[in-house]
Design a protein around this nucleic acid. Structure first.
Length: 756
DNA sequence: AAATCGTGGATTTTT
DNA sequence: TCCACGATTT
């Protein structure tokens, strides 16, 4: 197939596509056609440089990105060729590599991959074992220290050698034992996938050489969010041919808290002084207005190199800034506007996204969606594969795949209840520890002891019997399902373990069964690819399940709007974007307020959010927001102040005030309130001050039936007046479908309307 | 083994 | 405030 690459590409893009020899660094601003460049570059290599598809590997950030890349290439090549192009995440790539090279490792081919929760439970078990008080030392902190070490390629013994504080002393004690347990379980954690691959390359140069010679070209997308261990993999793979192409944008680095190392970009320049650097600065996604606003938000960061982003796109409409009274009204205004956009045909639901900083914000929005009948996809919250019932069944499957998987065994041995309680499990666990074997092995040892019914046994007769029943059940399912396809295996597990009955007996049982059905479905259309031949499909299925993310499950063309965290939104784009909670403490998040580096990351996060939008951007905030039970005043986000007012239309609380459906900016928009002059927070403080002065002296002169005027909500009628300590709570019904609100007399910006 | 009580913690979460 | 988890009770 012949491709004319120069067509539809700008000069810089063309340079990037046609640079085929030696290291290449592409700095790709948002919306700069990065994915197109990567795919065209692959196409170019194949068409013009005699490179075979299987000699190229592209590392992506998510499975979704990998799939999309393959899809795009699919339109350029035949299916067969497309399949042979290697696009995957670092983790998937390493997982597969470790399976194929398992002979070189102390792992079996069918090893399990521990997820976050498995890790936590193993760590707890270790802490208990080595006598570390979980109240004094947080499991999460230890987990993160271990993960951090591994992403810097530090083994447990290296960590021990370098420990430098009491906390690290504690971590060290857990780390070593944790590693033992993991490897005894024939398992690895996420970080191990990357680290073990590095170690394998180091210990077995012949293995590395095999891959080095196979892969002529290595590409890494979202390079700003890789960690050192991942970068090393890429470097080593490219060690022979030096054709390493990395693509990233330092301004979009938002995962430093997951050990992503923004300095990888600097290291790259140092490691490859002869590297070509190309900066893609033309934006094809957003309006001039949105792009300008985004640049204003990102530019205060000290720690960055300025880019000169530009676009030929239209000026577009102003960015709508709206203030709501509280998070409920924020949600309602947002959904009203969304309904408007949909009803008027301006946007299809799939073109709209609501983005937020923390998942907790999604609940109110969900409710507003339900109320207004707008269907939505919510990403995150409780992740699909972390749902109890899904995780349980997956644990069964993992156990059947690898009986040494202690984490899975411990999870399901008593689910549904089999009278194998904590005491029994603890005893088993103790014995396994002293015997240096897995729980399953320990069970076999006990059951095979001829005298297991007398006092030398560690378990009483009843428990022993229950364990025997469990053991037999697992054996039976395992042996009986050997030749079954995946879906039948899952069915067998659900039925024979009694899990179906167990679910049906509980509330929301149907819903949970529905989730299991979804799991079955995913097994039904599960296909293995060429590279995975010879491996048990169950092993591969479990691997995919472990390595899948929520964003991967996002459906592109569903007839629903998308609700998503700002982090998850990276790499996505929507015609219309609402960012809710543009407030100090939320965006930027309160945890970053005292840490300049984290504050810069919050800024980048905001930047990522803004640049997701094509043509319509709404920045929403609430005047007051519920936080852990009590309400706190909300200060408008500092990022709002960074956007020049000429780019925005500040609607105050009344979004209906927008001029028309095209949002043509009014000559001098009438501002109900503006963050440029007196902010609501100032007004709020003023009222607090007055409240303090007047204290309870102020008398209520509102009575039910009175007409009132509210600065934000407009006209309303007092429904009820209730005296509360040092104030009065007014219940007021507002016009225009704004509903009934409860307001505090001394805080609410209301005036009594004279009766006509 | 289930039910109840109490305490602590509450960003983001590619894999 | 609200939830989850662990400890304690029955």
């Amino acid at each position: 197939m012949e491709l004319n690459v120069s067509e539809n590409l700008n000069e810089k893009q063309k340079l990037a596509v046609e640079h085929t020899e030696g290291p290449l660094l592409i700095i790709a601003g948002p919306g700069s056609g990065k994915t197109r460049v990567i795919t065209q570059r692959i196409a170019h290599l194949i068409d013009h440089c005699d490179v075979k598809p299987w000699q190229i590997i592209a590392m992506t950030f998510t499975n979704k990105a990998a799939r999309e890349m393959k899809d795009r290439l699919g339109t350029l090549f035949s299916d067969e060729e497309q399949h042979r192009i290697n696009a995957s995440t670092f983790h998937s790539f390493c997982a597969m590599l470790l399976r194929r090279e398992a002979d070189f490792l102390s792992l079996n081919q069918d090893y399990s991959i521990l997820d976050d929760t498995d890790q936590i439970s193993l760590l707890k078990r270790v802490m208990d074992e080595v006598g570390i008080d979980p109240n004094q030392w947080k499991v999460r902190a230890i987990q993160s220290a271990i993960s951090n070490a591994k992403s810097k390629l530090m083994t447990a013994s290296a960590f021990r050698a370098g420990k430098n504080s009491y906390f690290e002393e504690i971590v060290d004690r857990v780390f070593t034992r944790y590693e033992e347990l993991v490897s005894q379980s024939n398992a690895v954690d996420f970080d191990d996938l990357i680290m073990n691959t590095n170690i394998l390359f180091q210990n077995h140069p012949e293995v590395l050489e095999k891959y080095q010679s196979r892969y002529l070209h290595i590409m890494v997308d979202e390079f700003q969010d890789t960690n050192l261990a991942q970068y090393q993999i890429a470097q080593q793979l490219a060690g022979l041919h030096k054709n390493l192409c990395v693509v990233g944008d330092p301004d979009q680095s938002i995962y430093s808290w997951r050990n992503a190392d923004i300095t990888n970009i600097l290291s790259f320049k140092k490691d490859y002084p002869d590297a070509t650097e190309i900066s893609l600065e033309q934006n094809y996604r957003s309006t001039k207005t949105i792009l300008a606003a985004a640049q204003k938000v990102i530019s205060p960061n000290q720690n960055r190199v300025d880019k000169d982003l530009w676009t030929q796109n239209d000026e577009g409409s102003p960015i709508i800034i709206a203030e709501a009274y509280d998070e409920f009204e924020e949600a309602r205004i947002t959904l009203n506007e969304i309904q408007n956009l949909i009803d008027t045909g301006i946007c299809k639901p799939a073109e709209i996204a609501i983005m937020f900083r923390v998942n907790a914000q999604s609940r109110v929005l969900e409710e507003a969606c339900l109320k207004s009948g707008v269907s939505y996809q919510l990403i995150g919250g409780i992740r699909f594969y972390q749902r109890q019932e899904v995780k349980d069944i997956v644990s069964y499957l993992r156990l059947l795949n690898n009986f040494n998987d202690d984490a899975s065994l411990a999870r399901i041995i008593n689910v549904p209840q089999r009278s194998i309680g904590k005491t029994t499990l603890n005893k088993l666990s103790e014995q396994a520890t002293s015997g240096g074997c897995s729980l399953w092995n320990q069970i076999e040892v006990i059951l095979n002891r001829p005298d297991h019914d007398n006092s030398t046994s560690f378990l009483n007769k009843r428990s022993l019997n229950s364990v025997q029943v469990f053991y037999n059940l697992m054996k039976e399912i395992h042996d009986g399902s050997k030749d079954m396809d995946l879906q039948s295996k899952i069915d067998l597990v659900i039925e024979r373990t009694g899990y179906r009955d167990y679910l049906q007996a509980m509330e929301h049982g149907e819903e949970r069964l529905q989730n299991l059905n979804e799991l079955r479905e995913s097994a039904a259309d599960f296909i293995t690819i060429e590279d995975e031949e010879g491996l048990d499909p169950l092993t591969i299925f479990l691997e995919r399940v472990s390595l899948i993310s929520d964003v991967d499950r996002l459906e592109d063309h569903a007839n629903s709007i998308t609700m998503i965290t700002l982090h998850q939104a990276k790499g996505l784009e929507y015609k219309t974007v609402f960012i809710v909670g543009m407030e100090e403490g939320l965006l930027p998040h309160s945890r970053s307020l005292e840490h300049p580096e984290q504050m810069e990351e919050e800024r980048r996060l905001c930047y990522v959010g803004l640049t997701r939008a094509h043509s319509r951007l709404y920045l929403m905030r609430a005047f007051r927001r519920g936080y852990r039970g009590n309400y706190e005043p909300s200060i408008p986000s500092r990022f709002l102040k960074d956007i020049p007012s000429k780019l925005t239309l500040n609607t105050g609380g009344n979004i209906k005030q927008r001029v028309d459906n095209n949002y043509k900016k009014a000559e001098s928009p009438k501002k109900l309130s503006s963050i440029d002059d007196k902010s609501p927070y100032e007004q709020y403080k003023e009222r607090i001050r007055q409240k303090k002065i007047n204290s309870s002296k102020k008398k209520n002169d509102f009575n039910p039936g009175d007409k009132v005027m509210h600065d934000v909500f407009g006209e309303g009628v007092v429904v009820d007046v209730k005296a509360i300590p040092s104030d009065f709570e007014l219940t007021i019904a507002f016009k225009d479908g704004l509903g009934i609100k409860k307001l505090l007399l001394q805080l609410a910006p209301i005036k009594k309307l004279n009766n006509m």
